[in-house]
Nucleic acid binder design. Structure first.
Lengths: 353, 353
DNA sequence: CTGAAAGCGCTTACAG
DNA sequence: CTGAAAGCGCTTACAG
């Protein structure tokens, strides 16, 4: 089964390859009657022009490489989903690869993207977020960013001399604390995460900063070996339950941790919503699929993904400012049942609208 | 900034382009000293051979197109994650696109994959699972499967004259019912899903079949406008709670529905685990991230993905049997807390190990 | 071990 | 409106 080419169509129609090319691509004029005959054959043979030959001319691939630690994590799945949607609309295909957050795998993927001649690369997680990156990991990205347009989804991207687009976590924490304060909460406990990753560390710093500013009693203590998952929340809550006094509100480093803590509290017989407020970050499905719906800081996935795409396309087109830029955008606080009670009202058992 | 080519390297080294090609690709002999000088320049210029020119020769892309309705759904995320892992190991890149289950989007994606010259295509969800597909949708896949190797992840793939690799849901239902019977349950209720999709419809048929075979009182009734999510479970449970008598066990069409039902039961003050057993399908994180861990039928993602990849590669290499094949494989029952009690023991309030 | 040359399949000024 | 021809950047028999 021989591959059909533009030449086969040309000879069968009795025209030149150039004319066939024009007829198919729509660039240039072709007599109506000739065009019809050509298109008939295209249909008959299911002819599809060879992209390589095409790209060899064009010099671009309309392909974007996308790295996440793991799509199974819904945070990354949402960002990718939205990104793919806008990229597809703009005629780009997206290659999604999972790095498992491992720097060697990242390197391998980056290299493969290069060999694949992707037009641009988006990278999330892994070394992008690691506070204590090695010199080599930094240099690799610096060099890489010279070869192909790169957008890193993270806050600390200046060190890579690359471009960053990310949620303004500082604002997110501020909004959440303001909301909790408004509900009358004073003792606020942050659980989950660790100090190795910026998204986690930054929230801690912001929590203390705004806690002080707002006159709240904020405490950040991970309380578990686990870090970014449900179990981290369960473990942490169990530790807290041992203590003489419980906080007014508990914030998880992400929704998973928050829901874990909330469920552990429920299991211990604590009235939720009510006796303790709970909140998380990321606004994943975990917020909804639970006994009590969780208040969460949403990165606004669609908007996020669009900003990433827009920046990447600028770079691909060589538009916009050169050098490396960092764009941070404000997240959105989604208030749900878990923080519906006012501290006061809660003590009296009254639920607010 | 001009693109470096093999010719630039050649002239700067004073050798022919052919020699540079040999040095870089490793095909053919090159004098050690020349090779060194060439590789130095490759390093200096960060030279990466143009894949199009390469592929134009080779005739393949080492690229696979993968369609899912939505990666945000963890079932698909797990399959993709495992597939990408094995595909990457074998030197393939995977393009992941979301169809939202819409047939027009599927068509568009399929066409783009063709233009992209992918070596093969994997398709999940959408029309693959729809019982009442249109003639056109069927023909499209039939024709498509002639142009490029395709593996459909579904049970009813014969109609597409294509290749199928899928979980044996019939066995899954059988295993689950056998387990529930073993625990002493007789009245078993299946909730969620609908009759439009095979994975849902098949489970219903199997449930009745094995129910009868095992002497169980099986009932399948979706009880909700919602179908495959948490809310379907919550709604269904609320309906059941209105009835005079509750079943011994409730099975959700997937984990989400099962957890929704379980949570609604807990909220209504029913003792879980204990008074009612709960189970789901897919073994997603929802099974673990909950007050009570859920028993679930796992598709064994890694194995699943490997079978899909293996079959696709056979097709790409033109190995294995021609014609269209359907491979079904046995899932695995993962037993957890939610079905730990025996019916009898539960009535007496004793938990079993 | 190495170079000249043809070829992969398309596109696009150029000249009519 | 159309054809001949060069070119995109690489690879690979072929002949030394």
């Amino acid at each position: 089964m021989k591959k059909i080419t533009i030449y086969d169509i040309a000879s069968e129609t009795g025209v030149s390859a150039a004319t066939v090319s024009r007829a198919i691509s729509g660039n240039g004029y072709v007599a109506g009657e000739k065009k019809e005959r050509i298109m008939e054959l295209v249909d008959k043979y299911n002819f599809v022009p060879n992209t390589f030959a095409k790209n060899l001319q064009a010099g671009y691939t309309k392909t974007i490489g996308f790295i996440v630690p793991n799509v199974v994590n819904q945070y990354f799945a949402y960002v990718y989903y939205e990104f793919e949607k806008i990229a597809s609309e703009q005629g780009y295909m997206t290659i999604l690869l999972n790095s498992q957050g491992e720097h060697e795998i990242e390197s391998k993927i980056l290299n493969n993207f290069l060999l694949q001649n992707v037009d641009g690369v988006v990278m999330m997680g892994g070394r992008v977020d690691v506070i204590d990156v090695s010199k080599e990991d930094i240099i690799e990205i610096q060099e890489y960013s010279k070869k192909v347009p790169v957008v890193l989804c993270g806050r600390a991207t200046g060190r890579f001399m690359s471009n960053g687009v990310y949620t303004n976590d500082d604002r997110g924490v501020e909004m959440l604390l303001a909301h909790l304060k408004d509900r009358g909460h004073r003792d606020i406990f942050f659980i989950g995460g660790n100090d190795k990753f910026y998204p986690s560390y930054d929230k801690k710093v912001s929590a203390y900063k705004y806690g002080e500013k707002m006159g709240l009693n904020v405490r950040v203590d991970r309380l578990s070996e686990e870090t970014f998952n449900y179990k981290a929340g369960v473990d942490s809550m169990k530790v807290l339950l041992e203590r003489e006094e419980l906080p007014d509100a508990i914030c998880g480093i992400n929704d998973g941790a928050a829901v874990g803590a909330m469920n552990a509290a429920i299991q211990a017989g604590i009235k939720v919503p009510g006796a303790i407020a709970f909140a998380g970050f990321d606004y994943t499905d975990a917020c909804r699929n639970n006994l009590v719906e969780l208040t969460s800081v949403s990165p606004r996935y669609e908007y996020f993904a669009k900003r990433v795409f827009r920046r990447l396309e600028q770079l691909i087109r060589n538009e916009g400012e050169g050098g490396h830029t960092l764009e941070l955008f404000k997240p959105e606080l989604v208030v749900r049942e878990s923080t519906l009670y006012k501290r006061q009202a809660c003590q009296e058992g009254i639920m607010l609208k």
